[in-house]
Design a protein around this nucleic acid. Structure first.
Lengths: 354, 354
DNA sequence: GGCGTTTTGAGGTACGCAACTCATTTTGAG
DNA sequence: CTCAAAATGAGTTGCGTACCTCAAAACGCC
């Protein structure tokens, strides 16, 4: 019907071997292949090798659907997250909710455990309490010895653990789903510097607390870039607003009173409403380059109005889905698609608002 | 062991109903439920309603693994893509390759069909030829009546079709995986304008061809922003470099010779190497704000060197995976996670290079 | 060579669904 | 009321794996 087109075709996948084929090739029974595949005891090293070779030779992959069906038991995951009215965390939960059809089609259950993430002992207790109940746990973690211990205990018990948004690199968690906060701070710095143009002047930083690992890292990255590339700009001492609107507004208002030549402002955490109010009360709404974090209803409006110039964002939907997918892959023993699960640092300006 | 922590727990999914439960609730047999579920004939409208209600009432989702296992036949997808040495397209293919383990664990096969995408009749023939062979087709499409017809024919034959990177909105394709190119152009415009600072001067545009839909749309968005927000900047007539290095360099060199006050440069398509060469030959490497598209080995280097100021990027890995996931969801009749499959317009600068 | 232990084979069952057959019941048109 | 057509029930088979039991074979030790 159609004339031959000189097209190449390149097949990427689609073998259809089963366990039976592997058994035949290795010259053993199905039971033995099963023992090897699941690291069950009672197989001679030599036999193990033969089976492994047959598996490798054929690039055999167990049919994920069949495996899921055969194991019967559903997998249970927990998301341990802050209980406060944090908008970003709320977004993550919302996106988990949007996945419910996807989850139930795979017989997965995801439970959100709200806890006081900022109290290490409470967080650790929450984690310990969930031991044994779940196949996997995603936790917005505080980097603290008690929390680290609790994470390691979970890992030792066979539970898969991923840290979410905030990492505990010294623990033995299997994966971290979140951004590199130093790079995020550097990005913010480059934006403030570039958008401020040739101007010289002062730059203000408002953070929740310098005790929070992610905030501290962002500030570090920010200062790095400012020092090395924008010598004309002077970074003022970091203000702490505790991620609260009122307090952020107050400290900032005081600062504006003292310095008339502020050309840039970096809001490291939340409290955006207060920051914006201080800016407008001081009448400097559009004369100060304002860079903050995360895309919410508020920052979206500020970007559209031109009050905010850019938001550094980590996609909450992506983080929610990546955490689930990573936990699932870990539980199944599947490889993780690193490129897919890597959370990127998004620069969001008015015209590329998602 | 652990003291009670006052934590709320909120379960999101995890029911475990089966078809049998639905049948019992609806007061019919398994066979009838099956008929309803797959729109097979021979069921009274009233009975259909009762079954549908039972399904809805329990938010029943067929076990995706069991379904996949039962249908036996593997699913086949095709990616119809340009045959040329296009780096971006090559990246998409590379990322498809990285998925091979994921694909084979699900007994999916993906074939890449290389064709001359820029010749409508050849492209249309390629599409027609693949009719019946595949459950789904992803195509980098040219917006042309012949291509539109071929896409519609595929859809009518029951094949799922998604357009990739470049859309054919007038066709009945099921989904488009790619960015909004007008918004991408607007973003580029905003960046050039903002990064050029207070300066007034001229802005150059180099495109592959204004006949290409995506290029035309980007230019449109770019001009929109320049006209409305940066009246101090004058946009020069669009240069056409045919996405080739040499030609881009020539036309640009000539332009630099005529205009001394160029402060911004937008490279809409490929030919980046030539553009960069023209810039450096003219000795304006770092005095002109240079914004382009896509993150490749070359643009990455130019960003790090400070020659390029920003790259507008659509993540090729994301596009590859999204296309596969969308085709799979369509074939299975599963809902599409729109938020997940939406391709975002990434602003990539030196410090958030992926 | 006999013994206990380790390793292996053979086989079965279950998982939830798709896709089919065939017998039976219900329905509605005349 | 009759009879063909339509609707439904009941059942089977197979998909590829996990997990289990039991018996048989091979092995190592004294």
């Amino acid at each position: 019907m159609a004339q031959e087109t000189d097209q190449e075709t390149d097949t990427l996948a689609g073998t259809a071997l089963t366990l039976k084929d592997i058994a035949r090739q290795a010259g053993v029974s199905l039971a033995t292949v099963d023992r090897v595949l699941h690291n069950r005891p009672g197989v001679r090293p030599d036999t193990v090798r033969r089976v492994r070779e047959a598996i490798a030779r054929n690039a055999f992959q167990p049919h994920v659907g069949a495996a899921e069906l055969a194991r019967g038991r559903a997998r249970r995951f927990a998301f341990v997250m802050p209980s406060g009215p944090n908008l970003f965390m709320q977004q993550i939960q919302d996106y988990l909710g949007e996945m419910s059809a996807w989850l139930s089609a795979r017989r997965l259950s995801v439970e959100v455990v709200a806890t006081d993430v900022f109290d290490p002992s409470v967080l650790a207790a929450s984690l310990e309490a969930s031991s044994g109940d779940y196949d996997g746990v995603a936790v917005v973690a505080l980097d603290h010895p008690g929390v680290r211990g609790a994470i390691n205990d979970l890992v030792d018990a066979g539970t898969k653990v991923v840290t979410l948004v905030s990492d505990v690199p010294s623990s033995r968690r299997h994966h971290y789903v979140g951004i590199d906060n130093i790079a995020a701070g550097r990005t913010a710095g480059a934006l403030v510097g570039r958008l401020a143009g040739e101007k010289s002047g002062k730059v203000a930083i408002v953070a929740g607390s310098q005790g929070l690992r992610d905030h501290a890292e962002r500030i570090f990255g920010f200062n790095q870039v400012m020092a090395s590339e924008f010598p004309g700009l002077t970074v003022l001492p970091v203000l702490e607003g505790r991620d609260e609107d009122d307090r952020s507004e107050q400290v900032l208002a005081r600062l504006f009173g003292r310095h008339a030549d502020i050309v840039g402002l970096y809001n490291v955490g939340a409290g955006t409403r207060g920051v914006a109010k201080a800016l407008s009360d001081a009448g400097r709404e559009k004369r100060v380059v304002f860079v903050g974090h995360d895309v919410t209803v508020l920052t979206r409006r500020l970007l559209l109005q031109g009050v905010m110039d850019a938001a550094i964002s980590q996609n909450p939907g992506h983080e929610a889905r990546a955490a689930v997918r990573v936990l699932l892959a870990l539980a199944r023993g599947e490889p993780i698609l690193r490129e897919q699960e890597k959370i990127r640092i998004d620069i969001v300006m008015r015209d590329n608002l998602p």
